[in-house]
Design a protein around this nucleic acid. Structure first.
Lengths: 369, 369
DNA sequence: ACGAAAACTTTGCGCGCGGAAATAATATTT
DNA sequence: AAATATTATTTCCGCGCGCAAAGTTTTCGT
């Protein structure tokens, strides 16, 4: 691997440091070192300034304006470490998702993060990088930051469930996306029974009843719920349910969908020409396999195969053909999860009953089914 | 939107809290409140314990073992806020990427994060969510955390360049992926001249010389370098360069590739049947457009169009057909970026000269070209 | 076994803020 | 205008740790 080194202009860090002391590029006024000095400069007592920074609306309007005027002049911000050391509780909420490399979790993580900010908290997002052990490590690392609460999207089956349950006794916690029974104050997610039921209905009404394509050993507990929902849906329509498994373990879901899909298609092993995939990533791989084998996928009369997914993956709009799928209501899930953790934090008490809230998924009809 | 509420078992937060005081689920020993108490419990003086936590190898082996034995018994961890308040510098490195929703940045962000951990720092990853203003906000927010250094993948053209430059005078900073001239101590990235040159060579040798498909107003400065590299490459081969622009602004790159690609394909507006896309996301959209129009893409003799990308997007393996592209050396970039920021941090001085390090891209031959 | 070097202990200050209590000033009500 | 309620000030302590200096013990080399 070739490596180029180019040199540019010369300048010195230490010099710059000295030069910016006192009069830096950001301010034209004498440096404020702490709240004491800022209070003096703004003509307000330190405890009142402290009060302002905890909640600007807790001080009188005239006081607030004087502080904010000084703030514009002096560019002071309280030392976050001193604050967090002394406050009853920090203002931060930990957000843990199984794998930020999965666009589904990137998206829901982002929405949850924004919901936290809207609610006045400081979100700290951590990815478990696909490794259940990292989930435990993330919880422990977060403990050191003494967050006011934790929003956890757990692996589920692969999580250290007892650790999560015990941890939830220590810090307010709300689960989302995937549930662990009796862990934390609440769970918020999508109603897989409804969403898969909806998709099953749609597929049964518009053509051959679907078979289900899923991982043999799914990491996610939602996969199990989806299977049950598929079975129920097929029974409701009086059709024989048929399940096809993809082998493989890990997070290369598309890879498994491609490899196993190709094998199964070549062998004619799919018992139906309509395939409902347990999630979009699997469907993306399967679409790729079908394309490679020259199999025309779609809902048209000239098509040999129908493929549907679940989750409305960011790329499902650009697959070939575009993927018919179920869209989860990220926004509603995030908002309610934050609302519930906020309630636990602010009342300093768990709700009397652990609440499970499930939102409906929406059918997104595209080309593939 | 329907919403289900289910109720589960009843238990009380406050009770649990009281119950875990003293003897919780995590420890069987009396609670340690601070380093003083832990020092007493381990039979070592507090300053030595403090020294241990700053660098375990800085104390004698026997001392280390006594502390670690106590550590296993008492489950103590130093207050991170008190530490960060009093240490000369924190142990954290801020990592800012333009958009974690873009799998390219998710991936490089993850690799940089891991490289930081390997180097003994605590990474803090922030996404600018596709908004240049958020980049500035992230820098300011990070300032409050007093990081030892910052690794910034800037927007580039859209960044507040002067703010970044001024900021880099305040905190050690190394740029990666995209450069801003004379900002920070160093830049590490991919050599677009080499990588696009490589791709241009490949395409010219194996068929019709490519035209370039790019955004009219690219957010990323790398796009400009790639255009220049394309022009140089075509000139080298004695071919007339031809550039086709996609309209649109924002981060829905695939969407623009699909929409504009469809329009251009329908109009027969591409001046070559080989199309080099400025990046994979654009290529993904264009592939989708070609598929929709029934245009066969690939390097085979029966194909009407060849399409190539750049970046080896996680999904480029699963497009239809799979995408021929350039893979960047994430690992090398991340490692060197961390190494350089570590040097600035540890020597407390900028290198005499701003270093620009560029790694080669690798050609990934797949089906599309 | 001796001296020097290294590691540890003791002591004490300081960081920048939160929080509490008593007091003083200002707003609002009647 | 006086009485009350609200808000701000003054004063003080505490949080949990880093850091430094001086003194003591342990380790290591010869």
């Amino acid at each position: 691997m070739k490596l180029y080194w180019r040199k540019e202009k010369v300048y010195h860090w230490v010099k710059q440091c000295l030069a910016t002391t006192g009069k830096g590029p950001f301010m034209q006024n004498p440096k404020i070192r702490n709240m004491e000095e800022f209070a003096k400069a703004s003509g307000i007592s330190r405890p009142t300034v402290s009060k302002y920074f905890q909640d600007p609306m807790s001080v009188r309007r005239s006081t607030r304006e004087r502080i904010e005027t000084a703030l514009r002049t002096y560019d002071y911000q309280p030392n976050i470490y001193a604050m967090n050391q002394n406050r009853r509780r920090t203002n931060s909420i930990g957000i843990i998702v199984p794998n930020l490399a999965d666009p589904f979790f990137t998206e829901i993580g982002r929405v949850v993060e924004l919901a936290c900010i809207d609610a006045g908290y400081s979100p700290i997002v951590r990815s478990s990088h696909g490794k259940p052990a990292q989930e435990t490590a993330n919880l422990e690392a977060l403990k050191a930051l003494k967050p006011a609460g934790i929003l956890l999207a757990p692996f589920g089956r692969a999580s250290d469930r007892d650790h999560v349950r015990a941890f939830a006794e220590t810090v307010p916690m709300v689960l989302f996306d995937a549930d662990i029974e009796e862990a934390g104050a609440a769970f918020v997610g999508t109603d897989n029974v409804q969403s898969i039921g909806l998709m099953t209905d749609y597929l049964c009404r518009t053509g051959e009843p679907p078979c289900l394509f899923e991982m043999r050993t799914p990491l996610n507990p939602n996969a199990n719920k989806r299977r049950l929902a598929y079975l129920a849906g097929m029974e409701r329509h009086g059709h024989e349910p048929r399940i096809v498994h993809a082998e493989g373990s890990g997070w290369s879901i598309e890879e498994f969908g491609l490899r196993e899909g190709r094998r199964l298609l070549e062998d004619g092993a799919f018992p139906s020409r309509t395939i409902l995939c347990s999630n979009d990533r699997l469907a993306i791989g399967l679409l790729s396999a079908a394309f490679g084998l020259g199999i025309k996928v779609g809902h048209g009369s000239d098509c040999e195969l129908r493929i549907a997914g679940h989750d409305d993956h960011p790329f499902s709009r650009f697959t070939c053909p575009s993927l018919t799928t179920i869209a989860q209501d990220y926004g509603a899930i995030a908002e309610l999860a934050v609302q519930q953790i906020a309630q636990v934090i602010e009342t300093e008490s768990m709700p009397c009953e652990r609440e499970i809230s499930l939102f409906d998924g929406k059918l997104v009809m595209r080309e593939s089914a």
